[in-house]
Structures are given as structure tokens and as C-alpha cells.
Amino acid sequence: MQYRKLGKTGFSISEISLGTWQVGGKWGDPFSHENADQILNAAVDSGINFIDTADVYGDGESEKAVGRLVRNRSERIYVATKCGRQLQPHVNEAYTPEAMRRFVEASLRNMQLETLDLIQLHCPPTEVYYRPEVFEVFDRLKEEGKIQNLGVSVEKVEEGLKALEFPNVTTIQLIFNMFRERPSELLFKEAQRRDVGLIVRVPLASGLLTGKFSPNTQFSADDHRNFNRNGEAFDKGETFSGVDYNTGLEAVEELKRVFPDQPNLAPVALRWVLMFDEVSCVIPGASKPEQLTSNLHAAELPPLSAEQMQQVKAIYDKKIRPLVHQIW
């Protein structure tokens, strides 16, 4: 495992880390602590030392599993969680300093920890990024020892650029993959200039970039890849990176021709993300230990060639850019 610095947090974190949206089981299934414990411990055994969770994952059960892991292991494990998505309705006005404090204290109770290494605003409405009082409360929480660092999880490049204006923002979590390339144009450069860490989520475009899906693939009724393709439940960009499913399948077939010796595209897609030095880590999820093993294979791959990088970009420019580039 290779390690990179997480911006001005100073943390040295595994470049392949773990996101826990589905760590308790497949999307839509009841949370399984037994399955979560297997995946989390296997991750640490493999050298992963950065775990990303959120208070809404499994309605707090994911945080509980992550906290149990940290308390039962001797290794230094950095924990990032997120807050804000519990607000109902999830609107700008609901983001108050009091609510943010309440969420931080609830996450500490869930994980039975004394401090959070990193707390992130969980894809708040764009207007929140123009309200200094929301960001200032985290300075108070840091003074009290309840958090160590503040970050943001964003949907749009615009939000990331605005977040960079707040000096207490140490990390930005964003979607970046072969089907979502816009962040590398300006946001990466600005984040690097301000020493802000970049945490990449949805690196496999909700599984599309594994190359294992087909027009006949069926997703369960409770799976967001079934019910959120047009943004019915939350931002459309979180599902298949906002790419039309059939268009994505066509692009994947072209990618397979670029990497004919790879039976599973997932490690290549993760290695592509890590070709960008500004990225601190990538956080693919896993609903079973075998998926974790597949993701970790990316660390063993050699760097992609300049020709391969150009071929990936050409597929993006032809198939994907006209549909999504300007949106996020």
C-alpha cells in the first residue's frame, strides 16, 4: 500500500481507502454488522488506514461499526464521517450552527470516540457555502476537542471552489472518475495550491466501470441504481455519475478495448484516478470482502501509459462530455 498526505490535516493515509456507504451489505439490504466487521478488519489488515462513513449510512449503524473497529485495533486508523443529510427537509435554512453541533455530538456517541479526525458537510445545498456562520461553528468544536478537522463533500465543482475560500476547510470529497473528469481542470489545481486534500468517491461510477453490467442487469427495488437514475431521491450525479445507463455501457465496451488484458475494469479505473497527484485517496466501497480484494489490486498495477490516458480521455470526450461535463 502507498500513502499520501491528506492536505493540511498532515495525515498520511492509504491512497486506496474505504468508503462505507454499502459496507453493511449490498445497497438496499438491512445493515449486517457481521459483514461490516469482516470488510473493515480486512481493510485494515491490507494496510488501509482511512475509513469514510456518515451518520446516515445504515441510520448510524455504519458509524457504530467503524467506531468498534477503531477501538478494537492497535493501528492508527483515521476516521472521517459526514453530517447534514439527516436534515428534513434538506434545505439551506435547516443548516444551523446548533444542528451541526448536535450532529457532531451524535456521531461521537455512535462511534464511542472522544474526537473525530475529520467531519465533513454532507453535500449541503449550494447556498450553505455562502454562509460563514455554518463553517465557523466547527472552529468552536475543534477548540473543544470534539473534531480535529473540517471538510466538505460536494456535488459540483462550483461548491468545491467556494469551500476553498474558508481557511478551516482541510479536505474536499468529490466524484471523480473516467466518466466525471471536470474536477481535474481547475478544482484540483486550486486545492493543491491551498494544501487541501482531495478524497475521491464514486470512482467506479456506481459499478458501471467494473465492466460487469449489461442491459439485462437487474438492481433491487431498494438500490439507488434502480430508483435514482433521474435524480428522484438525491442528486442524479451520485448514480452512475449522472451518465445515462446505456450510454455508459457503450463507453465501457470501448474502455475494454483499451485494456484488453484486464478481465475486471475496476482496478484500472481506480489506478486511473490515482494517476492524478492532487488526489489524496480514493474511497471505493465494498459490500463483501471479495470486492475489497478487487479494489486493492489497483495498488499493484503499473501506472497507465500516456497513450492509455489519452484513449480514456478520447472516449470521455466523445461519449460522456456532451452529456454531463457542464452539469457538475
Score class of each variant (00 low, 15 high):
M178N: 09
F179S: 02
R180C: 11
R180I: 00
E181P: 00
E181Y: 05
E181K: 14
R182W: 03
P183M: 11
P183Q: 12
E185V: 05
E185P: 01
L186E: 13
L186I: 14
L187S: 02
L187C: 04
L187E: 07
L187K: 09
F188M: 07
F188E: 10
K189N: 13
K189Y: 12
E190T: 01
A191E: 10
Q192V: 07
Q192I: 01
Q192G: 06
R194V: 00
D195G: 02
V196E: 06
V196G: 04
G197V: 05
G197H: 05
I199E: 06
V202R: 05
P203V: 02
P203N: 04
L204C: 03
L204R: 01
A205M: 06
A205S: 14
A205V: 03
A205F: 01
S206L: 04
S206R: 03
S206D: 08
S206I: 02
S206H: 04
G207H: 08
L208Q: 03
L209C: 09
T210D: 10
T210M: 07
G211L: 08
G211R: 02
K212I: 01
K212F: 00
F213K: 03
P215K: 05
N216V: 01
Q218S: 07
Q218F: 06
F219A: 00
R225P: 04
R225T: 02
N226Q: 15
F227N: 07
N228H: 06
N228S: 12
R229M: 14
R229A: 08
R229W: 13
N230M: 14
N230L: 15
E232M: 06
E232L: 04
A233H: 13
F234T: 00
F234E: 14
K236V: 14
K236E: 14
K236T: 10
G237Q: 09
G237P: 05
G237A: 07
T239H: 05
T239M: 12
